[in-house]
Structure formats: structure tokens, C-alpha cells
Write a protein that binds this DNA or RNA. Sequence first.
DNA 1: CGAGGCCTTGATGCACCTCAACCGACGTGG
DNA 2: CCACGTCGGTTGAGGTGCATCAAGGCCTCG
Lengths: 250, 250
Amino acid sequence: MLTDSSTPSQLDILNIKSSCATCSLRELCLPVGLDEKEVQVLGDVVSHKRKIQRGSYLHRTGTEFQTLFAIRSGFMKTCVLEEDGRQQVTGFHMTGELLGLDAISTEMHTCDAIALEDSEVCEIPFAKLEEISRTIPSLMHQFHKIMSREIVRDHGVMLLLGSMKAEERLATFLLNLSRRFSIRGYSASDFNLRMTREEIGSYLGLKLETVSRAFSKLQDENIISVDNKHIQINDIERLRTKMGSSSCRS
Amino acid sequence: MLTDSSTPSQLDILNIKSSCATCSLRELCLPVGLDEKEVQVLGDVVSHKRKIQRGSYLHRTGTEFQTLFAIRSGFMKTCVLEEDGRQQVTGFHMTGELLGLDAISTEMHTCDAIALEDSEVCEIPFAKLEEISRTIPSLMHQFHKIMSREIVRDHGVMLLLGSMKAEERLATFLLNLSRRFSIRGYSASDFNLRMTREEIGSYLGLKLETVSRAFSKLQDENIISVDNKHIQINDIERLRTKMGSSSCRS
DNA sequence: CGAGGCCTTGATGCACCTCAACCGACGTGG
DNA sequence: CCACGTCGGTTGAGGTGCATCAAGGCCTCG
């Protein structure tokens, strides 16, 4: 948009006051339910818009926790790893979503956050957030809602991982992406995946070959069209039936 | 302890002020980090000690959310269900742990909570908790830590469900129980399971027969002794190696 | 003493993993 | 320019870990 003359001296940190008041993601993010004055207070705390290049880390497991991050643009994944190298993608994250919630408990990050495309995040110093939320009840409440939503989301993933077949998992995944794109004003039926088959597989508890085969199967049935990372959903209703149709014996 | 002369007219609600100040679970629960005066304020909000009979519901999916619950005694499970009847146990919960966090986001419970043995819970009206935590920063912070810990725990379960084999899952599960019993002053190596094989299976994403076989296998290797629900851990180190030993190719 | 709940164990089948070959897109360097 | 390697994706063939189905044992409770 506006590339100011001077290039910043440090890494990739731009010291731009990114007031929440003018942010288009207001209605998806922390400021939900706040009045103008309150948004201003929050905006004064949330400084720095930091750029994260595709493939680089926003934070790493074990590093110190100071701030939450809100995704302003781009797309990120979070993943946890075992000592033995095993890895599990715990989530894919879009604009308006908060990262770093897991780190509050121990004051250390418990997962890696990696950009899947060039991204920008706002930094929200957590101590300050707690401080101002004492005087802004609706901010505190919204923050609690966001944490709670994350717990609900995780329970959904546990259900998926614990009891769904490969095709059901993929259908659930696609519908979830579809809904989230749609909320953000993008097409619900035509979008590009930012992640590889392997990353999808890690998230869904499948191997990449199985993910690929599940894509092909859904395409053969004319439910979706797949061209590499480009996905079109041709029949969202039939895709929905894939979520919970088969093998409901237990 | 003290069965007051009059039996309560309503269901199973005893109107006993259970001050947090004298509760033995203080160091596991919400009051962590609070001074005496603050604990008193919290204790005044947390009234009612409610009894839940084994097998009965603390709350059900879809019902209105008003209060969080802290387990004072007993053992509970939470589970989510799909429309099609599929069910997933999302957690087993012991004394000092908080239930209802998932319901903050929508003001409705998103899972069922069922007592696996006769239990008692404290009721914490959520609106009041938010209110008093405005004036007690350490209470707010502790609450955030608890929510965050729940998110971290869920990520661990996702890793388990997404990438572990049956035996690894069971080993992880037993070690987790062991640690939590130990924190509460019980034996880390000798305890009784409160849940059935089927419930364990649902939590671990396995069928009950597979759980049973995994128990038998660990017993054959002299790592644990199993007598129905009674578990003895004979070799905790070897049990630990079971968590992440095999098939770490990826 | 019978019924039902919970658990164990065996036999069989299948969904997914594993291994391998191949393809196209892309970048790099001779 | 093409040769080459790498990376991500697809597809096939074969193996396996777990689900499924089935039988039987133990315990509790009426």
C-alpha cells in the first residue's frame, strides 16, 4: 500500500503503529465487542507490525514468551515435535487468529509457528493485555472467548483424529477451510491450499500418499476438482455427507 | 464429613460455603499464587459444593453455561459426540481441575461431563470470576494459565492420536495418569483406573480390544501388572521408552 | 442361578502405511 | 540452451497394525 521512503534498519520489524481502530480484521480479532475508546487503548498497546517471510519462524518451541501474535495477513502453521523427531501439525492459522496462547501456561512457547506464505503479524505484549483488560471487561471477555474457542477447536480435531476415516478427515478439513475463507470474504468453493500434502497429512494423522489418494477419490466422484494446490468444491452438500456417513457402528 | 441434619430439598445441591482458603487443593486449583485476602474473595464467590453420583452428568452438550466447575473429589470424563452417534472422550479429569472452559466461547456446553465415581464439584460463576479477577491480577493470570495448559494438553493428545501406535498411546496414557496421581499425593506406580477399556479406547483412538491387548503385551513384558482396573507400574523407565521408541522414520 | 457388564483372546479382513516408480515444475550452473 | 537435481504430487503393489467378529471367562447383582 504505502511503502514509506526509509527502509527499516532492523531485521524485518517495522515500527508502524497499527491501530486496531482502522484494521479490517477488527471483527474477527481481539477488538470484537469493544467501543471506539477501548479499541484505541488496545491499539496503543498493539504496536509493531512484523513481517515473516514464507518458510521462516514466528516463534520456536522453548523460546521465551512475551507477546501474543495476531495474524494480519498471510497464513501460518503451528506444530509440535517429539524428541524423536516426530512432528504433528496442530493447526493452520488465518488472518485475525491469535497465536501464542499455548505459551501462557509456562511462559515458553510449546510449539513452532512457521509462515506458509509471506505474512504480517501484530504483536500484543501479554502482560499489557492483561493489564488493560482489567479496565476493559469486554476485552477480557473476548480474550476468554478466543481461548475457549481454541479449546473447542482442539476437541474437534481430537474427534477427527480419534474416530474418522481418511476420506472423512479430508472432507472435514476442506469444509473447515472453506468456512474460514468464506468468513474472510473469499470464495467458499474455490481456493488455493497454502500447505503441502505432507502438512495436511500431519494435521490429519495420515501419510501424504493417503491424502493424495483421498483427494483423487473425491475428484473422481466429482465432488471437488483438484489441480495441485488449487481446489474447487463442486458439490458442498455431498462433501458434507462425507464427513460422517460411513462406518458409524460404534 | 458433616452431614447437616436437614437434607436438601433440591436434587443434590448442598449449600455449603466451601471456602477456598481451607481447601487442600488450593495449590492445584484456581487459588495458586493468591494471598490470603484474595483467596477469601474467591472463596466467597465459589459457593455450593455439588455432589455428582457415579454415572450421572455434571453438564450436557447444548445446555446453558453459567459456571465453571472445579473438581473437589472424584473423577470425571468429558466427551463430545457427532450427530451420527460417534463419540470421543476428550479428557479424564481429577481433583483440582477445571471443567467448562470449552463453554465460554458460545455460552453453551460443547461436551458432556460425566462422573466416573461419586464426585463433588465447586461451582464458580463465570461472570463473577471475571468480575473479581479485574481486581485480583494474579487470579486473572492463573486463570489464563489454566486455559493455556488445557490447550497444551490438547496439543499433546493430538500428537498422540496423529502419530503414535497403540502401545505408545497406552504407555503415554499410563504415564500421564501416574504423574497426575503422584502430584496429588497418591502412588505413581500403583493405582486403580476409574474408566473402562472402552473409554480408554475412545480417548486414545483405539478399540477396546486393542487397548486390552496392549495392556496384556505390557504385562507380558513385565513392565506393568494388570489386574482388571488395578495397575502396577513395575518398570517406569521401560514404560517411558515405549512412548517414543518405535517406528520414528518420519 | 441366570443375566448383564466388563474384560480377554483368537481368527480374519481391510484401511492405511510403506516402498517404489514416475511426472511436472522450478531453479541452477555448465 | 539444455542437463541436472530437487521438491511436491500421483499412482501402484504389497505389507501390517488395528478393527471387526466371535467366543468364552469372571464378577456383580437381582
